[in-house]
Amino acid sequence: MSTWIWAAVLLAAVFAAAWGSDHLAEPLRKLRKQWGLSAAAGGSLIGIATASPEVGVNVTSAVRGVTDIGLGAMLGSTAIGIPALVSVGYIATRKRDIPDDPGHQQHLREHLLRVDPKAATVQALPYLGILALAALLILPAPWQGLQPIDGGVLLAAYAAYAAQAFFRGREKPEQVEWSRKGIWMAVAGVGVLALGAYFTVISTQNLVQAFGISPIIGGLFITAPVAALPEIFASWKVSRSGQITPALTNIIGDHAMTMTVGFLPLALVGTQIDNFRLVWVSFVFVALMPALYAAFVRWGGSEPGFRRWQVLTLVGAYATYVAVVVVWVLELV
């Protein structure tokens, strides 16, 4: 098949997986309200749905014996996710009126994208702890790579992360209505998500063969950026509706699940690291993003959120990552 056809299959597969996760996300949003979770804490719950395509890709990668694609997609998506969604959220809210935000005019004058400060303490800082644990399990030479025991440890870490987010972010519960149609759409969403994840891996396999590149590079720079597109579109829509904190905290919950539960399929089949320099450099930048996120939200100014220069700093950090990989790791320039 032509390279262009596989590229189209990849795009369609990613959007199919996103459609499936969207229909899984709606019941989880209702649960957030019913359980009385704050917007910041609810990001952990919604992250179960938004991270499910990455988890599905890793399951398929493990089953097909191409774990490097899954590993590359995980690292690539967690590196690009925060800069992409914060940038889109900032651009989407540069209009005159935002619902339910009486201070928006002032925020426009100050070039501020305001976010609930709990996003730093409830989401970003615990996520940094998860990344430190993942690096400790994967990178040191004596036990380098992923083994089944690593998957169990990371699964326990996600359970602890979700528990602290739920208990620290409690609010008054709300009454919600459940429909049979919504439940069946969620079930259908799981099926479509699995199908989309399968064809995401298949198309990436064919694209890396066509371009003559390694599977982990294909995961990093082909699968991951394309997989970020549905989240970018969703962030634009949610941010413009005035729900800025949910739009910009879901990504942390997404990444926390990706870097824990997402590693489980790769750990169960055993995954070796062939390009150690690429993986540790990726880990450095994957950790840098939430560190900047937390610092900007919590200590970046008199009001919590992102200012224009901070948004540009996040974008610059990702551009630096790409440059380091291309020039120093792969030595393509």
Rank of each mutant, 00 (worst) to 15 (best):
165 A>E: 02
138 I>W: 02
149 I>Y: 06
111 H>N: 01
150 D>V: 04
98 I>A: 09
119 A>R: 02
127 Y>K: 08
154 L>A: 03
147 Q>W: 10
117 P>K: 13
122 V>A: 07
136 L>H: 04
177 E>F: 07
199 F>K: 06
108 L>C: 05
199 F>C: 00
178 W>N: 08
109 R>V: 15
144 Q>H: 10
162 A>D: 00
160 A>Q: 00
121 T>G: 13
201 V>C: 15
115 V>L: 03
183 I>R: 09
105 Q>L: 14
170 R>C: 14
177 E>A: 12
166 F>A: 12
135 A>G: 10
154 L>M: 10
121 T>F: 10
172 K>H: 12
101 D>I: 02
184 W>I: 03
177 E>P: 02
110 E>V: 14
123 Q>Y: 03
153 V>G: 04
136 L>S: 09
166 F>Y: 09
195 L>R: 04
104 H>T: 07
112 L>T: 04
192 V>D: 00
118 K>T: 06
147 Q>P: 05
162 A>L: 07
182 G>Y: 11
184 W>P: 10
136 L>T: 04
203 S>F: 00
197 A>D: 13
117 P>Q: 10
174 E>G: 06
179 S>I: 14
168 R>Q: 12
170 R>G: 13
189 G>Y: 01
200 T>D: 00
153 V>L: 12
173 P>D: 05
134 A>M: 03
183 I>V: 13
128 L>W: 14
